[in-house]
Nucleic acid binder design. Sequence first.
RNA 1: UGGGGCGUAGACAAAUGGCAAGUCAGGAGACUUUGGAUCUCCCAUUUAGAGGUUCGAAUCCUCUCGCCCCAGCCA
Length: 562
Amino acid sequence: MDDNSYKPSDFIREIIKEDLKTNRYGGHVHTRFPPEPNGYLHIGHAKSICLNFGIAEEFKGLCNLRFDDTNPTKEEAEYVESIKEDVKWLGFDWDGREFYASDYFEQMYQYAIQLIKDGKAYVCDLSSDELREYRGTLTIPGKESPYRNRSVEENLYLFERMRTGEFEDGSRTLRAKIDMSSGNINMRDPVIYRILDTEHHRTGNKWCIYPMYDFAHCISDSIEKITHSICTLEFEDHRPLYDWFLDQLNLYHPRQIEFARLNISHTVLSKRKLVELVEKGYVRGWDDPRMPTIAGMRRRGYTPESIRNFSQRIGVAKRESIVDVALLEHCLREDLNKRAPRVMAVLRPLRVVIENYPEDLVEEIEAINNPEDPSMGTRRIPFSKYIYIEKEDFMEHPPEKFFRLAPGREVRLRYAYFIKCIGVVKDEKTGEVLELHCTYDPATKGGNAPDGRKVKATLHWVSAPHSIEVEVHLYEHLFTVPNPGDYEDFMAYINPQSLQVLNSCKVEPNLLNAKSGEIFQFERLGYFCVDPDSRNGKLVFNRTATLKDEWTNIMKRQKKDK
RNA sequence: UGGGGCGUAGACAAAUGGCAAGUCAGGAGACUUUGGAUCUCCCAUUUAGAGGUUCGAAUCCUCUCGCCCCAGCCA
């Protein structure tokens, strides 16, 4: 799928290879991606998706998409659709194996009855507060429920009545009878069914009791004949329970393997924090291009390939870590560099009059669409006496190492001519540079001087009368600190500059019919994609990523030295 | 302080008793009609620490230290 030769190797793949060698699962590999449909997918989920689907592909196995929909108070059908869209967009295909934990509710109910019959589960009348008290603490063992030793008959009768809706929400639970003194709190007679008289997005009002995760997940895996059930580290403590249910029920037994979830610098990935960003209006929604959600990244201009490549390069391990967002951006640039057509755009226009260029002449200049890929061809760009260049490409008093335009200095206009600055028009009061006067050398057409003289800089430009005015959204990291998740008041570290809207940017006329989602490289500036909010007559571009830029590094260093 | 995990460079991450990979970031240079891309070089005498076993230890043993997770009728 990805055309790089990097072969992932990690402890999970090692385990699978070993299981294949020992024929533990009959030579099959079958994974699953099990999202709860209660929110939008983010880059952390992408890691899991790439892991599960990727492993299935590599080992010629299968990966199911299974919605873990056991809590109707939190889940909605809307999320199911967005999750499917995101997984598909990332380039993975569950090939019709779209399952739901709720598909197995009846079967789970029967397994619960079996547990009761075997004396391994009981109906408990403790309230949630009492349950908490009886559970004990990290250092103090729990106490056994007074209902723990009800007869099988009574348990069966009561559980039946829980199902038929005779009891109030929360008034009773079905609990596994394990060990109240276990050091692992999950084993202290965990709840396996709770009463929740709530409509479910798929089963409607058929049920008023719903299984808990620990019970539902292992059984779902077992029913689907999953071989390797890959989940995140916080479920490590649950593995003994996972194993216990399947052992007691004597069911086909997949192997649960835990890995460290993804963290990325300068952003947050926890559901709670992401919700807060949206609800408090710090971003414009779940698909705001600053969000680390799949939808946000898609709108920002990320490609599925770049995300998949990133997932591969960060590896899989049990050590908790924060991946530098620069690695993600690197993967993005690497992909976009190969595929994005180049185009010229000026974000902060500075008008330039070319004094010795004929007033009415318009030349069509040929430009290469992508130097990385000659098959993408060339295009023509109009050139005239009046052009715009980038404000920051001119300095009246240039510091050392600033190679661009300055009074008396000659530079190249990309694909066009050498120009020399001969005059600066400034606002008398503010001193702001309003306009530049230059001359051009007709002999340098195309960008080379026949006499062999060199210039130190090449500037991008657009012809003023032919340019299109567009809006551009510049994005920076959402947070100013690398690890906002470490702070309870993480909102205090939001980057006030994370969005900057520029309204009078000028782009070359070839962009007139650019379509939503199309990605371009604005030469020397970065990658930009057309936002879906673009309207006729007003294109909106999102800056997907900046280009790496030696000059900004130089400035940063100088700042630091001071 | 009960239970479960994890400590390799600024950030990821390999190495499975035999010369501490690779990537990102950073630095130096070459090249360049994008200060982009590309190319070259540099960036861990040492694997949280201390002991021990061994011809040989990131890897095995012992102890110590640090970090993360668990007390939802959430997943």
